[in-house]
């Protein structure tokens, strides 16, 4: 096998890795926001349900949940495609962690600004989307970066459900070439490069939306 062939295999694997990572991050952000915002309604029974939800999803290993979804659910008549399985396991678990990040950031929004918005006659939802969410997202950047990194690092589990990501390509290459050492070293660097790319992207987004002097009080 030529170097070029190997390179193109790993490149296509990288595409799937990015796809899995982005899909899981999207799931995490949406579910995390949902949990954090629902918690904001301060409905006691609902909050109890949300607490149990986050506790379970933060307590179960990603791989175990992935196996429940992908290998277990078909046993009760629910067959879930591989990418969706990743989103329902890795995505929701990361979402449960993100919900905590968002919750803390929402609590950091200045009460007096909310009161000023109320005094202006803004509705609950207007205040939420014009004041609280924009501030909360800015406070959440470090926490989000941590969680997104975690998603990327757990994305190789996708190979266990048959997604041809970097890891799956590496396994195939290692078994045909018998040069596992070089290949795993190479993909280690490849993952690190993707991580650095993600870091740079997040920094750029953070800069784009940065507000001078705006920080957690």
């Amino acid at each position: 096998m030529s170097f070029l062939q190997m390179f193109s295999l790993l490149a296509s694997g990288a595409g799937y890795t990015v796809l899995v990572t982005v899909a899981c991050i999207a799931t995490a952000v949406v579910s995390g926001l949902l949990v954090a915002l629902l918690g904001r309604l301060r409905i006691k029974p609902l909050n109890r349900v949300l607490a149990v939800y986050t506790y379970i999803f933060r307590g179960i290993p990603v791989l175990v949940l992935l196996f429940i979804v992908f290998f277990g659910l078909p046993g009760i008549g629910l067959s879930v495609p591989p990418l969706v399985s990743m989103m329902l396991s890795l995505g929701l678990i990361a979402g449960a962690y993100l919900a905590e990040v968002f919750r803390g950031a929402l609590d950091a929004v200045d009460e007096s600004e909310i009161m000023a918005a109320e005094a202006m006659g803004m509705s609950r939802s207007q205040i939420l989307f014009a004041i609280e969410v924009p501030q909360m997202l800015r406070f959440s950047v470090p926490g989000m970066l941590n969680e997104f990194t975690t998603v990327l690092k757990y994305s190789p589990f996708a190979y266990t459900v048959g997604i041809p990501d970097i890891m799956k390509q590496a396994l195939a290459l290692a078994s045909t070439t018998l040069r596992g050492l070089e290949i795993y070293l190479a993909i280690g660097l490849l993952y690190f490069a993707i991580y650095q790319l993600m870091l740079a992207l997040m920094k750029a987004v953070e800069r784009r939306f940065s507000v001078p002097g705006f920080k957690r009080l």
């Binding site: 990194t149 690092k153 757990y154 190789p156 018998l178 596992g180 050492l181 290949i183 993952y191 991580y195």
Partner: peptide
């Protein structure tokens, strides 16, 4: 922090024997 643990494990378990 930026590389998956699983890659490191595979590197040592499946790569090193060569």
């Amino acid at each position: 922090i930026g590389t998956p643990l699983i890659v490191l494990l595979f590197l040592m378990y499946y790569g090193l024997p060569q």
